[in-house]
Write a protein that binds this DNA or RNA. Structure first.
Lengths: 219, 219, 219, 219
DNA sequence: GATGAATGAGTGTTCATTCAT
DNA sequence: GATGAATGAACACTCATTCAT
C-alpha cells in the first residue's frame, strides 16, 4: 500500500513522478507507458514508484484528477472577470483551448480513460459539464440565454469544444500523430465562427411580436 | 504476410474473424483483446488468424474502417429522402444515434484508436465530417443555412453528436462503465433540444433590416 | 487457463516439465525455484510452461500429488507378497526408505508444502496414514497387532519413518545440507532396531494369565 | 554489520524485534515475512532492524535457536521431578505438546528451516534428540529401558512426538490450514495410546520363561 | 539510537507471432 | 486451408538492504 510522503524530499519525489506520468501517458498512451519509463522520466528508481502509488492505474487516476482540476481552474479563472455571460463563455472556451494547447495530455489521456478507468472518465466530463450547466442557468435567469434544457446545452458545448479542440489544436496540419509539446491555439477565425454558432444556438428569441415595447415606438 | 482468401470457405473464415474482432474490441478494448480471444470467438484456430491478417493492428484498422463505412451508410441512407436540409440533418443524427446504440463498439473502438492507429482515427472523423461539410455547403447554396465556414460547423456538429451520444446512449443512468449490447437511443426531448440548438446555430439571419419586404408592411 | 496437451508432443513436454519441477523444487525449494529454472531444466521455452500449468503453485501441487502416489505405490507393491502383517510392515518401511533415498524430493518438497499448499500437505500425510490404518486394522483382526487405536499407531509409525528417514537417508554424515541425487538407504542395524521398537509397540499381549480360559475348555 | 545493543533501550528494541519476528514467521512463514512486517509488528522503524540483525536469515536463525532453547527447557523442567524414567518421558512429551500448543511457531518455523537454514534445522533436532539419548542411556543403566541403540530410539521418539503433535495439536479438526494462537493439547486418550506404544517399544524383556527365578520352581 | 526514502535485481505471468504438421 | 504447440521479450510489482538525516 502506498503512503503519502512525510518529508519535503518525499513530496518532491511524488510530484516528479506525477509530472513524469502525465508526460509519458500523453506521449505514448496508457498501455505503452511502463513504470520504468515513468520512473526514468522522473529520474528516480523503479521501486520508488511504489512508495507513492499503488500501481499504474492509481497514478493514472491521479493524473486524470489533476488535469481535470487544472483545466477547470483555468476555465473558471478566465471567466471570472467577464462582463456578461457570453463574454464568460468566450473566455472559458479560450482558456480551454489554451490549456489543451499547453497540455495535449488532457485529450490523449482522457480518451484512454474509457477502458482504463471509466469512472475517472465520467467524473472528468461530468465536472466540466456541471460548470457549464451552472453558468447557463444563471445566464438564463438573467435572460441572456434562451429557455432550453441547460444539461443538453452543456453537453453540446462540451462536444463542440472537444472536437474543435481536437481538430485545430491537436492535429498538426495533415501530419503525423500528434506528440507532446506546446501547440498553436485554435485560429481566430475558427474560434469566432464557433462562438457565433454557439451564441446563436443559445440566444434568446428576439421575435418582434414578443417585444411589444418596440412597437410602442412606432408612430 | 496475410493473403486474400482464395476460396468461399476462406471468405467465410475471414468474415467470421472480422466480426469476432469487432465484438471483442468493443467489449474489452484493444489491449485486452488477444488474438486467442478473437479466434476463439470466431471459432477458428489461432494460426488461422495470420492467414488473413497481418497482425492485431491490421485487423483493428479493418474493423475501424468497416464501422466507419457502416455508420456513414446508415447516416446517408437515413438522410436520402429528407424533404429539406434540416430534415436531412435530423435524420442523419437519428441514424447516428441509432447506430451507436446498436454498435457501442463505434465509440469504444474509436477512442482506443487514438494511440493504436492514429491514422484510422483521423480518417474516421474526417470522412464523417466531410459528409457534413458537403451537406452544409449545398444547404448554404439553397439558403437554408447561413453563410458560415462549413468546416467549423461540421466539426461542431460532430462534437455535439459525439458527446450527446456518449452521454445518453452509452452511459447507463448513474451506473457502471458501459458494456456491449443494444442500448436505448437518445430520449426524444434531448434530441429535440439538441436539434433546436443546432438549427438556431445554423439558421440564416432573419434581421428585419435585411428583409426590407417586412419593413414595407409598416405604415 | 492451462490446457491438457492434445498431442503426443504435448504430452512429452508436460512430462518433462513435471520431472524438471520435481528436481528443481527438491534442490532449491519452492521459493527459490523460479519458472525459468524449471523450464530451463526441462529444456523448453519459458512461455511453454503456462501452456500446461496455471502457475507455480499448480505445478507444485501436481508434483506433491505425483510423489505421494508414487511413494504409496512403492509401499503397497513392496508389502503385497509379505507372509504376514509384520513382514508387510517391514517391506513397507523398506520401500519407503528406498523411495526416499531415490527421491529426496519427497521430504524436501513435503516440508515446504506447509506454507505453500497446506491442503496438499495434509492430503499427503493422510493418504499414507490411511494406508497404515487399514493394514493395522486387518492385522488386529488377525490377532497380529494388539488392540490399540489404529489411528494413533499409524501416526506414530509415520513419524518414526519420517524422522528415521530424515536422519539416516537425507543427512549425509555430519555434512552440508543435503542435495539431490541418490543416497544410501537406512543402515541395516538402524532398520532392525527401529523395526524391533515398532514390533514391540504393536505386539499383542502374551501374558499366560490372559489366555488360560481357552485352555480350560480342552478336555 | 549488526551490533549488540549497548543500552537498556537497545536491549528492549532487540527483544521486541525478536518477538515480532517469531510471530510473523509463525503466521506467514519465512518467505512471506518481510522485514517491514517484522518492524511494524515490533513497532520500530525499518532501518532499526539492521542495527541489531545482519539480515532476515540472521534473525530467523536466532528465532529458531530461541525456540529450541525454550522447548528444551520446557521439557527438562517438566521431567525434572519425575519418579522414574517412564514418568520423565511422559512429562517430557506432555511439555512438548503443551509448548507446541502455545507456540505453533515451533513446527511451522522448523519446517521452513529445511531450505532457509539447514544448519539451524539439524541443530534443532539434534539437540532435542541428544536430550532423549541421554535420558535413555541412564534409563538403560537403571534397567528401565531395554538394551537397544538409544540413538535410534531417540529419533523414533522424536518422530512420534512430531507427527502426533502435528496431527492433534496443529490440525484443527478437518479444517483449514493452522494459524497462530493457542490450541488444545493432544487429547488424553491419544496421549495414553501413544505412551503405551512407546513404553512397550522400550520396555525390557520380561518373559517369564527367560527369568531364572521360575526355573527354581522346577523340581 | 532511530528512521524511512530510495534502490534495482529478480519474479511470475501474458501474448503476439512463428512454423511444423 | 487450418491448426495449436512453442517461444521469449516485455511488463507490473516486491522486498532486502543501504544511507543520509
Amino acid at each position: 500500500m502506498s503512503t503519502a510522503p512525510r518529508t519535503a524530499r518525499g513530496n518532491r519525489t511524488r510530484a516528479k513522478l506525477l509530472e513524469a506520468a502525465e508526460a509519458v501517458f500523453a506521449s505514448v498512451g496508457y498501455h505503452e507507458a511502463s513504470i520504468v519509463k515513468i520512473t526514468e522520466a522522473a529520474g528516480v528508481g523503479l521501486g520508488t514508484f511504489y512508495l507513492y502509488f499503488d500501481g499504474k492505474q492509481a497514478i493514472f487516476d491521479e493524473v486524470v484528477e489533476d488535469l481535470n482540476r487544472r483545466v477547470r481552474h483555468a476555465m473558471t479563472d478566465a471567466a471570472r472577470n467577464a462582463a456578461n455571460r457570453m463574454e464568460a463563455e468566450r473566455a472559458g472556451f479560450r482558456a480551454f483551448f489554451r490549456f489543451t494547447a499547453q497540455h495535449p495530455a488532457l485529450y490523449r489521456i482522457i480518451r484512454q480513460a474509457e477502458f482504463v478507468s471509466p469512472g475517472a472518465l465520467r467524473l472528468h466530463y461530468t465536472r466540466i459539464v456541471n460548470g457549464y450547466i451552472e453558468g447557463l442557468k444563471s445566464a438564463q435567469a438573467g435572460g441572456e440565454v434562451r429557455d432550453m434544457d441547460p444539461t443538453v446545452a452543456a453537453w453540446a458545448l462540451m462536444g463542440i469544444g472537444e472536437l474543435i479542440g481536437m481538430r485545430w489544436v491537436l492535429w498538426d496540419e495533415e501530419g503525423a500523430p500528434p506528440v507532446e509539446g506546446a501547440r498553436p491555439e485554435v485560429p481566430e477565425e475558427v474560434f469566432e465562427e464557433m462562438m457565433q454558432f454557439i451564441e446563436r444556438g443559445l440566444a434568446p428569441d428576439t421575435r418582434p411580436s414578443s417585444t411589444p415595447p418596440q412597437e410602442g415606438t412606432l408612430p
